[in-house]
Every structure is written in C-alpha cells, then in structure tokens.
Design a protein around this nucleic acid. Structure first.
Lengths: 251, 251
DNA sequence: CGGCGACTTGAAACGTGTCAATTAGCGTGG
DNA sequence: CCACGCTAATTGACACGTTTCAAGTCGCCG
C-alpha cells in the first residue's frame, strides 16, 4: 500500500500553494530557500484525517473552510434523483477546494473521499484577509481559477465530443499526468484507488462498458491494473492515440 | 427583429454588475437610487460593437480586457482538430467575461459572436485595482465565479448523464430562464438567434438529431421556433419533463 | 435564375446501455 | 478454519440511442 511515493510533507509542500506562501503550520519547519515571505505561518490551520468513502461536505452544507488535500484521493460528485452519479473532479494531493470562498453560494456538489484523506483546512475569513494583503497570492488564486476553468472545459469536450473509449483513455492519462506533476509517480506506475464504477461515473458511461474497455486496453498491452490498486501505463503513445490525444491541437 | 425587449441601457444596467457598482460610463447618467457609491464611474471603459459571426478573441490571444455583454449573443467555443466544435457557454446580455483576470493563463477557448454584439470592455489592471478597494465588489466576483462553476457542473451532468433529447430540452429552458432573469422575455417568447448547429455543438450531439428532436418537440406542441428567430415555449411543464427536470433534486 | 446554406427525412451502421448470469475478492462471524 | 454475504468485475445477448450517409426541400441573396 505504501510502495509508491506518498505525499509526505516534504513532497507535497514543495508544490503546494500553501507551502509557497507559508500559509501553513506544516511548512514552518522547512527552510524556505530565498523566499521573501515570513517564516511564520500566515494562517491558522488545522489538519484533518477523513476515512475512505466519507463525505467531507454535502450539497447543502455551508462550508466555511478552504481545504487543501494533503494525502489520498477525493472526488466532487453530483447524485441525480434516479441515483446515478456524475463525478465532476478527482481531487489529488496538493489540490485546493475553494468552493467555500463565498459561503452562501452552495455548489450543489458533494465532496467525498475515495481513500483515507489527510487534509488541511483554513478559516475562510482569515484566508480572504491574507488574500487581500498579498496580491501575488491573489494571483495564485486566479491561476487556480483559470485551471479549474480549463478542467471544466476539458470535461465538456470529453463528455460532448469523444467516445467512451476515448474518454477512459484520456482520464487515465490525465490522472497520471497530474500525479506526475506532483512527483507522485513511480516510473510508469501510479497509485490507483479508483473502482471501475468511479471511472464510469466520471466519464459518463456505464460500468459494464468500462470493464470491456479496460480489458481491451489490457489485452492490447496498453495498461496494467493490478489488484493492489496500482495502474501501470505500458504504452503511453498508443494510449494517447486511443484517447485521440495524438493530434496536436486536440487539447 | 426588435419586437422583444432589447437590453437597452435602462434594462441591462438594472441587473448588470457594472451598473450596481457604477463602474461604467454608461451608467452615470442614470439616477442611482439610494446607492452608497459615487456617481462618477469607477473605471474607464469603452463600448464596442462587433458584427455577427466574428471572433472577439481566439484561443491564443492574450486578452487584457474584462468584457461585459451589453446586447446580442456570443459563445465560448472549442474547435477540435477534426473540425468538430464544442460550445462551452452562451453569453447573453449582462454576462461578464472574466477569463482575462490572469492574462497569461490562456483559456484555450475562443469567444465568438452569434449576433451582432454590443459590449463594454474594462482594462484588466484598472479592474483589479478597483476589486481590491471594494471588497463587496470582490464578493460579486466570487459570486460570478461560483455561478460559472455551477454552470460547468450542470454542463457535465447534462453531457454525461442525459440523452440528447433531454439535453436539448434543458438547453432551451436554461436559455429561457437566463433571459427571463434579465427581463428579456416577452411572455413565453424569447429572441432566439441560434441555429440548429449551435444547439448540436452545445449539447454534444449531431445536427441531424437536433433537427429530429426539435420537430418532435414542435409537433408535440411543446415549442414553436419561428423563422424570424424567436422561440416560444408553449408548454413549460412538458418541456421540463422532457428534459428530466420535473424531479425535484434533478438540478 | 442559379447557387448556397440551413434544415428535413429515411435507412443503415455503430456505439452504448440494459439485463442477466457468473465469477472473484474481501471482510465478518460462527 | 470455513461459510456467508456483500461488492466488484466479467461476459454474452439484445435493445436502444445516436451518428453517418444520402437525397431532397426550403428560403435567401446575388
């Protein structure tokens, strides 16, 4: 279970927004190389450990916290009246959940853990105050905003204009690349706690089809999903091609 | 062409963010009832008229402007390598395009007019400065952010978990309701400049299917699309039902 | 009048969901 | 330790939704 790089403080904080701005208690023990920011944490925060399969906040909650995922996977999901589910987003170590910036604007989506999650929460008001004092931190906020928008656009293109097979291939590559950018890969292998049901609900397809597509990918030698919850991408080029990602402007 | 309420200054400004905060030259001639804000515009801005079918900015542009649509319809679109298109968003009078808040984060989507569009642009830096001075304006920004996120989530649920027929019905109702909230309806009728191709590209379906579904809706007495570019919704309840929107929690 | 783009309609092919039966894996408790 | 129940995954057959191809209509404009 712990064979792959885990987002220890050292790993996670290196890329984390909170780390760069020394927002967080967890970072003050680390040496900030050449940073112009104070060594003291700008913000009070508290660490939180949430078991797997648990709701962090539901559709109706007014959450007052800005949350940063430290370890583990979570997801943002919408449950439809007929019980079906659409997963909007997978939240990986280093991701930030800002939805709370305006408390009364409920998001209508729930945040649920997939694995056990270690996260850090900041008080909304304090977070906002710091935002206004540090315009370059504000810039980071805008960058996160832009990134969320890019993700949302990507999701729409995937769901609207690609087949289920393509969407699944794209999801696997997307998850790999996001983990890779945080140093959470081990060669071609990543931790992969998702069930096929998650993949189905994220790609808007049926879990039966996900099973068929994954075993097709497997027997074609593109991927290897082992029972101890890891994914190895054996052939990036062909998997990208299966996801229609080999054309330059495909975005 | 001008039979329906047009977003004249008086109409548009009443609901516009710029109007509420007196950002805009166009508003200073209007009496602000009981507003605590200055009568002078907070920001310099310039009006702009763009012909139909024209790109306001493309995927690669670094746009330095915050834009508010004053009159007409526009859309945010992504063109795929094979020429297909996904429409991310329809922009109606009163909508704000913030993508520019962080200039170097290109959105990978283009903004294109559908009809002729009259819009107003603000300089990015000046806009940001005002943002920092007026925290309640900042709150509005967060509200717009939250609304965009809700829209994006809705789009994902639509594309991922509803049939083409449902998506089309939902789009029609969605557009009606957004125009209604701005007072741009005339009973059950709205201006409707969209081609079937737009509907297809927004709902991720083929224009042939859009044609079939629309004529089905028409012959079932749900809607009436007239050749002078208007849409009348004859039976909201059944159209909502066709869009699977009659169940409470459907969102 | 001719040409063009938007729309319509039918038939066939394709992708995907549904149903059902079966197997594998996992934790629980006897 | 094994039996049990539960969930996840697999597989085949079939039905349905959607795209594709093709032909044809309509309205608009030069």
């Amino acid at each position: 279970m712990e064979k792959f790089p885990q987002p220890e403080q050292a790993v996670l904080c290196a890329t984390c927004l909170a780390r760069r701005y020394s927002l967080c208690h967890a970072t003050i023990e680390t040496v900030l190389e050449g940073s112009s920011y104070t060594m003291a944490p700008l913000l009070a925060s508290s660490a939180l450990t949430v078991p797997a399969q648990q709701i962090i906040y539901s559709e109706t909650d007014l959450h007052d916290f800005v949350t940063i995922i430290g370890r583990g996977w979570a997801m943002r999901e919408v449950i439809l009246a007929d019980g079906r589910r659409q997963i909007m987003q997978f939240l990986l170590p280093g991701d930030i959940i800002f939805s709370a910036l305006k408390p009364e604007s409920t998001s209508k989506s729930a945040l649920r853990t997939i694995t056990e999650v270690v996260c850090r929460t900041f008080n909304r008001n304090e977070f906002m105050t710091v935002l206004f004092k540090h315009s370059d931190l504000f810039d980071e906020l805008l960058e996160v905003w832009a990134e969320e928008k890019r993700q949302a656009d990507q999701r729409a293109v995937d769901l609207g204009r690609h087949t289920a097979k393509q969407r699944i291939a794209r999801l696997l590559i997307y998850l790999y690349e996001r983990l890779a950018s945080r140093g959470l890969t081990s060669g071609q292998v990543i931790d992969f706690p998702l069930r096929q049901r998650h993949i189905a609900d994220a790609t808007g397809s049926h879990f039966v089809l996900v099973s068929r597509v994954l075993s097709e990918f497997h027997s074609a030698g593109l991927i290897e999903i082992s029972r101890n919850r890891t994914l190895m991408i054996r052939d990036f080029m062909r998997l990208r091609s299966a996801g229609n990602m080999d054309l330059a402007a495909q975005s």
